[in-house]
Structure formats: structure tokens, C-alpha cells
């Protein structure tokens, strides 16, 4: 559905001839009907990538295709396949009603939106009663839904959502997840750029994590969680001062102490095995009280990939 191939974007540095690498040879593809999450810390290059896909930024090199149409060479055809919510809810005319916004944005894309279709979209988002209300008078959550409604009014198969839960309260964010799931059920392909790890954990099929302009991992979300879950342990040790000294010599630095017990969080690398670790403790006379598999949330995965 969306193919990003070897994308590079450089920005000129202010008062200098040097350039900043915002996106560094990024490639990924979003498959038909999936929710693909693009994650990364601030300045990782997510927004530049998203805006390049939406034809708002011209990359220095690389290629982007939407349903086979090149954004650079067949801009009009490519952009007619995709609609977006950018920068949360700022992409709406606040002194126009929800319905007027929907009609306008569908219209400038050459699409006719009849009132019944519009009301159907609004009903599916729980926004039907607000159809004629001016956007500025809606709550933040409602405005966010209105932005999605505008996106759906454009009647495209591919949706691009940049920070869609930004500023939403807990209830609205939870509601938003079910909206995304229902869009996926309707066959929409969704590219999601977000900092909201709960949203990613709840709805994404695949995840790409960007850091410093590069993609550091691109994998199915569940596989990532499984891999991390398989390697993360909480090991409780019975320790005296001598054992603590040995632990430090073995390279363990941080732990929680509870009386004479020590709780260690261990993330095994791919070459390490739990048995080897147990042998190490045994040979150093460190008594093991218990071993538990750690529950991994997506936040931990994200941090482990983007840590300096």
C-alpha cells in the first residue's frame, strides 16, 4: 500500500553550509489493511517521513509510492489515495462546522460528499449530534474525532495519522483506540505516528522505531513483545555485603534492595542464556531466591531501542 524506499532528507543548517540529516536511508512498507506504527523520540525523523509521504516535503533522494503511484512523479494520483490527520486537530477550520469542514475537504479533493454519507461517518464516530456545531466549540476529544471524520470524508483507503491522541484525556484515548480498530475492520490501511505507547500496544500490527533519522527496528508488534518477554526476568537474590561486591564485579549496577533480598531486572542479550546466568550466580556463591519472567510493555521496548 505504502512503499518508502531509501528515503533521505537533509535540511540546511542555519547560517552554515552544513546539512542536518533528518531522514537517513529509511525504507519500509505498509501492507494492505494493517495498522503500522512509526515511533521514535523527538527529532527522530518521523514527521519528516510522514510529511514526505503526504507530499508536503520533497526528499533529497529515495522513492515513495502509494498504491503503486509515485508521490514525486504522479503526485495527484498518489495523493488521491491517501488522507491525513496532521498535528492533531489543527487541520480544521475552527469557525466552520464539522459538516462544513467535511464537505470542504472532500470537495477540494474533487469528491462529492452527500449528507447521508457524512452523517453515517459522524454516527460511527459518535459525533452525529455535533454535525452542525462549530469546531472551536467542541472539546479536544471531539475535535480529534472531527479531524478523523474529515479524513474519512475524503474516502481514501489509506489514512495517515500524525499524533492522533495528542492532548486527549484517558477516556478519549481509550475510545480512540476502538475507533482505529473499527477503521481497520472496514479495510482501511493506517500509518500511525505517535508517542503514545499504549495506543501502539493496543492497535498496531507492525511497528517501525526510528532513531536519529534511521529505522532501528521494523517488526510485527507481537514478535517484538515476545522477544522482549522471553528475555526479560526479575531475579531475586539473597545477598550480603560480600555478594553485592561480587555482583558489581560481574557488571550488575542497579538493583532494588528489600531487607536481605535484592531484586535484579535482567534483559538477556541474544547470545545469553538464563542457565548461564544461574551458573554464574552459583559459582560466585550468590543464592537465588526466585526467578520470574517480567511483563514487558511497549514503552520498555521503545526505550531499549532508542536509548543513547
Amino acid at each position: 500500500m505504502i512503499e518508502v524506499m531509501d528515503l533521505v532528507k537533509l535540511y540546511p543548517k542555519r547560517n552554515s553550509k552544513e546539512k542536518i540529516v533528518a531522514v537517513d536511508h529509511v525504507s519500509f512498507n505498509v501492507k494492505n489493511g494493517e495498522i503500522f506504527a512509526l515511533l521514535g523520540p523527538n527529532g527522530a525523523g518521523k514527521t519528516t517521513t510522514i510529511k514526505s509521504i503526504f507530499g508536503l516535503i520533497v526528499p533529497d533522494s529515495g522513492e515513495i509510492k502509494i498504491k503503486g503511484f509515485s508521490v514525486l512523479k504522479e503526485r495527484s494520483k498518489a495523493l488521491s489515495q491517501i488522507s491525513a490527520v496532521l498535528e492533531g486537530n489543527r487541520n480544521l477550520y475552527w469557525r466552520m462546522s464539522v459538516l462544513e469542514n467535511m464537505r470542504y475537504f472532500a470537495g477540494i479533493r474533487g469528491k462529492k460528499l452527500n449528507k447521508w454519507n457524512a452523517l453515517e461517518i459522524l454516527e460511527s464516530l459518535g459525533l452525529k449530534e455535533k454535525a452542525n456545531q462549530l469546531v472551536h466549540s467542541l472539546s479536544r476529544g471531539m475535535q480529534q474525532k472531527a479531524a478523523i471524520a474529515v479524513c474519512l470524508a475524503c474516502d481514501t483507503d489509506v489514512l495517515l495519522l500524525d499524533e492522533p491522541t495528542l492532548g486527549l484525556d484517558v477516556h478519549s484515548a481509550v475510545e480512540f483506540r476502538s475507533i482505529l480498530r473499527s477503521l481497520k475492520e472496514k479495510g482501511k490501511t493506517i500509518l500511525l505516528s505517535t508517542h503514545d505507547m499504549n495506543l501502539v500496544e493496543a492497535v498496531a500490527d507492525r511497528v517501525a522505531i526510528m532513531n536519529k533519522g534511521r529505522i532501528v527496528v521494523c517488526e510485527e508488534k507481537q514478535k517484538l513483545i515476545d522477544v522482549f518477554t522471553a528475555r526479560a526476568y526479575k531475579i531475586t537474590l539473597v545477598c550480603g555485603e560480600e555478594s553485592k561486591k561480587r555482583l558489581k564485579e560481574l557488571g550488575f549496577n542497579g538493583w532494588n534492595e528489600n531487607g536481605n533480598l535484592i531484586e535484579l531486572q535482567v534483559n538477556l542479550t541474544s547470545s545469553q542464556r538464563l542457565y548461564d546466568l544461574i551458573d554464574t550466580f552459583r559459582s560466585n556463591n550468590i543464592e537465588i531466591e526466585s526467578i520470574e519472567k517480567e511483563m514487558v510493555n511497549f514503552e520498555k521496548i521503545f526505550i531499549s531501542y532508542t536509548r543513547e
Partner: peptide, 10 residues
């Protein structure tokens, strides 16, 4: 709203 208008196929 500029970007949204800009990203129209027209």
C-alpha cells in the same frame, strides 16, 4: 490548515 489544503490531489 495549509498542509491539508496543500496535500489535495488538485
Amino acid at each position: 490548515t495549509l498542509e491539508q489544503v496543500f496535500a489535495s490531489p488538485i
